[in-house]
Amino acid sequence: MTSTLILGGARSGKSAHALRLAEASGRRPAMIATAQALDAEMAERIARHRAERGARWRTLEAPLDLPAALAQIAAEEIAVIDCLTLWVSNLMLAERDVARETAHLLEAMREKELLLVANEVGLGIVPENALARRFRDEAGRVNQRVAAAADHVVFIAAGLPLTLKAPTIS
């Protein structure tokens, strides 16, 4: 099975790219969403995204336990995990060990056809408070570990994909 990590900034086109790849794969698409509807604006956003994907897409909500959600993905499906950065935030707020949870995710990744979306949060200024710096550091470490395990890594800027890692041909 193959995995692709799609990185980029906010509103760079990462999710749209992942959805296009999933639709073009010929597999049945599944969305593993890490967002939670904690307020009305987020509930509306989630409903809008679900409607845009359409009935063909199966949606699983997994704000914390991505490996359990991946266990529900069938062999004929391709899963989009959107997004790892929000997952890191959720783990931190739940006081979970991000490194340990990432290790579990890396194990589960091996068995599935995956497109993983994440924000590249390390390109800006150094945050002024300790929590924001810890979040940036955790997200950066997760991105590095997932990128090392992924077959492909793509960076999206202004909707344009730039390949950072392609599979080696043997």
Score class of each variant (00 low, 15 high):
residue 107 E to D: 15
residue 108 A to Y: 01
residue 108 A to W: 01
residue 108 A to S: 10
residue 109 M to A: 02
residue 109 M to Q: 04
residue 109 M to W: 01
residue 109 M to P: 11
residue 110 R to S: 12
residue 111 E to G: 10
residue 111 E to T: 15
residue 113 E to I: 05
residue 113 E to A: 15
residue 114 L to V: 01
residue 114 L to S: 05
residue 114 L to W: 07
residue 114 L to N: 04
residue 115 L to D: 06
residue 116 L to C: 08
residue 117 V to T: 11
residue 117 V to R: 05
residue 118 A to R: 01
residue 118 A to M: 03
residue 119 N to R: 13
residue 119 N to K: 14
residue 120 E to D: 14
residue 120 E to Q: 12
residue 121 V to I: 12
residue 121 V to S: 03
residue 121 V to K: 01
residue 122 G to M: 12
residue 122 G to Q: 10
residue 123 L to R: 13
residue 123 L to Y: 13
residue 124 G to I: 01
residue 126 V to D: 06
residue 126 V to N: 10
residue 127 P to N: 06
residue 129 N to F: 09
residue 129 N to A: 10
residue 130 A to Q: 13
residue 130 A to N: 11
residue 130 A to K: 13
residue 130 A to L: 12
residue 131 L to D: 13
residue 131 L to G: 11
residue 132 A to M: 08
residue 132 A to Y: 04
residue 132 A to H: 04
residue 133 R to H: 07
residue 133 R to G: 03
residue 133 R to W: 07
residue 135 F to M: 06
residue 135 F to Y: 14
residue 136 R to P: 09
residue 136 R to V: 14
residue 137 D to N: 08
residue 137 D to K: 08
residue 138 E to Q: 15
residue 138 E to P: 00
residue 139 A to F: 02
residue 140 G to L: 01
residue 140 G to H: 01
residue 140 G to E: 00
residue 141 R to T: 12
residue 141 R to G: 04
residue 141 R to L: 13
residue 142 V to S: 00
residue 142 V to K: 00
residue 143 N to T: 08
residue 143 N to E: 08
residue 144 Q to K: 07
residue 144 Q to Y: 07
residue 144 Q to L: 09
residue 144 Q to S: 10
